[in-house]
Nucleic acid binder design. Structure first.
Lengths: 162, 162
DNA sequence: CTTACTGCAAATCATTTGCATCCCT
DNA sequence: AGGGATGCAAATGATTTGCAGTAAG
């Protein structure tokens, strides 16, 4: 099958993702509140990596009473039920991104602009599975981050020291 | 054959790594102090991922006067000069690991025990380079973390809920 | 109705920083 | 000597948590 690198092929549509999460949340016996719907809905609509603070800013635009604490609690809930992943791209604050409704994808980070490109590649996945197997493991999940320098870029200053 | 996964093949010896770092530090016009030697030396000897706090504990054993602040400052210095990398395996504190004297390696993390296995694989590196190229990038560096479940493990309790 | 959820503010935790002192170079 | 480096403690910044009021089921 396709084993070249694809951007994200297809994803579930926002409404479907939201209702799936809602079901998952309720299935856990956890309540579905207006705040959670606003926060998670916004998160889904943005369709990108967000820090808790960024998400809080966005959510405040539609409901100024929502607190940062609730945003943190909601994101942690999503991570706990496996619908989102927490990552540290920088050293300071954590970024979250949806894991549901999107195929397995990884990140190619433009070291000049900081832009994050998502990709996936079956051949690579296969090799990783093989490697894990050699050590006696079955992969539960994985994170891949490539830091790249644009090829067509004019000659950069010098040696990228990080 | 030989392009499967290898553990770490060869590394520079501790003393050589230390003197290389010392040279790099001095070359930057930065002073080489007893604290830095103790901290960096310990870090090299441990030859594994350490959080600043863990390293501080270890260093204290040989010099109780060294402060946590100095450990942080020293690790940041190593990262700045490209001799170490800062990672976030968990959500809380950052871990550091040497990047000098060791071939490109990645991590296979045992989700049950938390044990970290380092590996490298040329075929995988080649594919990653190809993927980046397709997007118009040349890889500057990359991080790969596989989270695995032991295959020969006795039937675990069930869903490792948390 | 019950009890989980929320906002707020205080509490944590990891990491950084101001400052007086110290010691590499 | 001279200025960067260090220790200590206070300052930060991100994230968590206790509590009393509020709302989901």
């Amino acid at each position: 099958m396709a084993d070249g690198a694809h951007a994200h092929d297809e994803d579930m549509e926002p409404a479907e993702i939201l209702s799936t999460i809602q079901r998952a949340v309720r299935a856990r016996g956890v309540r579905w509140t207006g705040q959670r719907e606003a926060i998670i809905g916004t998160f889904i609509d943005q369709d990108r990596h967000l820090t808790a603070e960024e998400l809080h800013q966005l959510v405040r635009a539609q409901d100024a009473t929502i607190s940062a604490a609730t945003v943190y609690r909601t994101m942690n809930l999503l991570v706990e039920i496996g619908m989102a992943a927490k990552r540290h791209f920088n050293g300071d604050s954590a970024s979250f991104d949806l894991t549901i409704g999107k195929g397995h994808h990884h990140h190619l980070i433009d070291v000049d602009s900081g832009r994050i490109i998502e990709f996936k590649n079956d051949e690579m996945e296969a090799i990783l599975a093989t490697i894990a197997e050699q050590y006696g493991y079955r992969i539960a999940c994985h994170k891949i981050e490539l830091f790249g320098v644009p090829i067509d870029e004019p000659p950069a200053k010098s040696a990228p020291d990080e």
